[in-house]
């Protein structure tokens, strides 16, 4: 049992972070605005969780300007994808 729990990723323990990764897994990149809408969270809340995922290098950020307005896009990194898959497998094993 303990061994299975070890495979659960601390970075995904939070619902919002799990949600962010879920969206990034199936999209090349997602805008901040879309994430906010999708997960129904506040700007500050979302930003802090994005920061946390960025810190462990699970997501990458690209900033560009669209019509002179800043547009921030997020995408999952390879290590983020791997970690997420491992986390899901751990949950599935736990439920077996």
């Amino acid at each position: 049992m303990k061994h299975i729990l070890d495979n659960l990723d601390k970075a995904f323990e939070n619902r919002v972070r799990l949600g962010i990764m879920s969206a990034l897994m199936v999209n090349d990149s997602v805008e901040f605005k879309s994430l906010k809408h999708l997960l129904k969270v506040t700007d500050g809340n979302l930003a802090s969780h994005l920061k946390a995922l960025e810190k462990v290098n699970y997501i990458a950020v690209t900033k560009e300007f669209l019509d002179r307005k800043p547009n921030t896009k997020y995408s999952a990194t390879d290590s983020g994808r791997k970690a997420f898959k491992k986390h899901i497998e751990a949950i599935e094993n736990l439920l077996k």
Binding site: L18, G19, A23, V26, I88, I91
Partner: peptide, 12 residues
């Protein structure tokens, strides 16, 4: 969690 992951993947 799994349900929500699936839902978010679909919606996004």
């Amino acid at each position: 969690d799994l349900k929500e992951i699936k839902d978010i993947m679909n919606r996004s």
